[in-house]
Design a protein around this nucleic acid. Structure first.
Length: 291
DNA sequence: AGGGGAACCCGTACGC
DNA sequence: TGCGTACGGGTTCCCC
């Protein structure tokens, strides 16, 4: 389940590997992962979208690869006669649970949804077993609309403790739900919400409006710490996540809360509690030292 | 505004 | 062993 550190890892690898590469041919194998206006939107005619993607990407040049929220953004431009890049559009890839962007060297199989063959002989595949991930090809205005609807990036220095505190304290919902609400804060999912709250000693069910400013400042710094540490170890492979070379992330062994229900809290030794009652998602915390 | 539930998928785990 | 079924997991969308 790629969240911010995992999609960041993929984006950094692909930016280094693909910047400047030219697409020779496009094969849409599974068109049901394609979306129109934005990732996650209900799908339009899959056949029409497949034709649009093939048409737009054939001959296109990779301008750069970046990340926003939990999505990898591949920016393409068309190479014109003069050599300059025009008609920038972006393929927004949201892998969800089992999606992966793989560069050549990984064997092809039945789960390839999209394959881009590059002029230099390499290839890039979007691979997804469950196909809950999505690919959306967005022009400049649709891309801007999608980005504008997302909350700030937790690692952006422009997100000050004051602003973060306003996000958390401005809602009566459970603080964990606020952390995971992509409209309020982008990129944080279940794993890192559990971890950040454990580190900051805040109970996941505490209402945002009842988290103090001091706790908010601590939560932001612990959130940034856990995200940065995970990026340094190329993310968390709990189960399905793979990087662009098919490799696993190294952060799973560092998790203190997620997936450790019943195990002793590494801070106080009490058994970690778990519930699914918070929006139906696995929530793990220490009753003794998180309040 | 926000909470609940369905839908999207299919490998995995389980029951019989 | 095989077959059938429940489940998970983030997000959107619809309804209350």
């Amino acid at each position: 389940m790629p969240e911010l550190p995992e999609t960041e890892t993929i984006a950094r690898d692909l930016d280094g590997a693909l910047r400047g590469a030219v697409v020779r041919s496009v094969e849409v194998v599974r068109s049901d992962v394609l979306r129109g206006e934005a990732p996650g939107r209900s799908r339009r005619s899959a056949a029409a979208l497949a034709a649009e993607v093939a048409d737009a990407l054939t001959g296109a040049k990779v301008h750069g690869v970046s990340r926003r929220a939990k999505s990898v953004v591949i920016a393409f431009g068309t190479v014109c006669a003069g050599g300059q890049v025009e008609g920038l559009h972006r393929l927004v890839v949201t892998p969800r649970f089992t999606g992966a962007l793989l560069i050549d060297g990984t064997p092809d199989d039945a789960y390839t949804c999209l394959r881009l063959d590059l002029a230099d002989g390499r290839s890039l595949r979007y691979h997804d077993v469950r196909r809950l991930g999505t690919l959306a090809l967005l022009g400049p205005s649709a891309f801007e609309a999608w980005e504008m609807a997302l909350g700030p990036e937790p690692l952006d220095p422009a997100l000050t403790p004051e602003r973060f505190s306003g996000i958390i304290r401005g809602s009566s919902r459970a603080v964990k739900s606020i952390l995971m609400d992509q409209k309020r804060l982008a990129g944080v999912g279940n794993i890192y919400a559990n971890e950040a709250l454990w580190r900051a000693r805040i109970r996941p069910t505490r209402r945002g409006e009842r988290v103090t400013r001091v706790q908010c400042a601590l939560l932001l710094s612990e959130l940034r710490a856990v995200l940065s540490e995970s990026i340094a170890l190329r993310g968390t492979t709990f189960r399905d996540y793979r990087d662009a070379y098919g490799g696993r992330g190294g952060f799973a062994a560092r998790l203190q809360a997620y997936g450790r229900a019943g195990e002793p809290c590494s801070r106080c030794g009490d058994a970690l509690s778990a519930t699914h009652a918070l929006e139906g998602r696995q929530t793990v915390w220490c009753r003794a030292c998180q309040s």
